[in-house]
Design a protein around this nucleic acid. Structure first.
Lengths: 192, 192
DNA sequence: GAATGATCTTGAACTAGATTAAGAAATCAG
DNA sequence: CTGATTTCTTAATCTAGTTCAAGATCATTC
């Protein structure tokens, strides 16, 4: 497991002493997932916050009709999970599944709380992380409403060029808020 | 200005000493806005983070065709502003305008940084606030993609029953991601 | 209180994207 | 390698929501 790059992601926002680094690494719970396996299942209470070390995962919501709505793809360096379930300890509405063989680091809820209490500077780290994520989510919401599907697909490809190699098109369609059939139409139209 | 309820909002998440309370209040910059006035204009660099004390504001994005896309309504107790412009000090893409005569408290960027440095527990406060906001934004994104406009309108009314008295329908339509004409159709259909 | 401007509604024509159904291509298991 | 399953594409039909244009209602100002 490559902890150096994981720590580098954190020290972009806050500086850590050796002691803090060691403690942080010590509370991470490494797990390997084969393609298709779940890191977390809807209906169960989330046990921790997930940091992706390698591979690719997706987090999605399944509605009553059984339609999956992808809300995030996560590759190395990304955090994922259901924050609501994590804080409130209610059953999660999201599932997180490996799209390729992956390694994840689970930060269990109790350990996360311990971390924040012992080294409050991690509050700052997560504050910055959530703040940035919020900015991204606001932008996505605006795009969802004001851009046609084709332009959303363009932006998606520019923003995450490496993802299309891992992710089946039907999940990209779902992320974009359209059907696989319509994504197919966009791709054909574009290749002419 | 009613600082008690503003402080109450904060002490729901972190506890404050008298000194911390006083300092926090001392850095807030009260401003009165008449209906229609701007708290913040797209294209200008955001000067601070906005807390609403009374009235009602909306934050919206204007695209190249000049269409407004409302992303948030804020009433007493809510924070608003452009987080990206605030942190990066780049021109804001959002405008924030009063929908009714309102009072706001501006927390200037430098003072915010001073607050976080002097009393790091406010990192925790904002971490929790952004985390909750993120949960809400994820849910909105899912709703935007998976629920028809009529149900989104239902949810909106249940969630913010007090808003319809302040907010012109065309802005509610924009918030829901539909045209005013279509919202009108939904309302007529419903009243039959 | 008339006039002006903004907001809201209505209806007709249109379009982006959904749905259904089927076949083609790719992936996987034994 | 072969059958089975999943993914991707194509085409026809349909619908939720848009656009355009006009009139009705409401608010604001002088």
């Amino acid at each position: 497991m490559d902890y150096a790059s994981i720590l580098a992601n954190i020290t972009r926002h806050i500086s850590l002493t050796k002691e803090e680094e060691d403690f942080f690494v010590s509370i991470l719970n490494p797990r390997k997932l084969k393609q298709g396996e779940f890191a977390e299942k809807a209906g169960e209470v989330t046990t921790g916050f997930i940091q992706v070390a390698s591979g690719c995962l997706m987090t999605y919501f399944t509605d009553k009709e059984g339609n999956d709505q992808v809300i995030q793809f996560s590759t190395a360096g990304w955090w994922t999970g259901d924050l609501h379930s994590l804080t409130k300890q209610e059953p999660s509405i999201y599932s997180t599944r490996a799209l390729a063989d992956s390694e994840i680091l689970l930060l269990p809820k109790i350990r996360l709380e311990e971390l924040l209490e012992r080294y409050p500077k991690f509050e700052r780290f997560f504050r910055i992380m959530f703040q940035n994520s919020l900015v991204t989510h606001q932008a996505r919401l605006i795009e969802a409403f004001s851009l046609p599907a084709e332009e959303r697909y363009n932006k998606f490809q520019k923003r995450y060029p490496q993802l299309e190699q891992y992710v089946p098109l039907k999940y990209i369609a779902s992320y974009l808020g359209i059907t696989p059939e319509f994504l197919s139409k966009i791709r054909r139209k574009r290749s002419n």
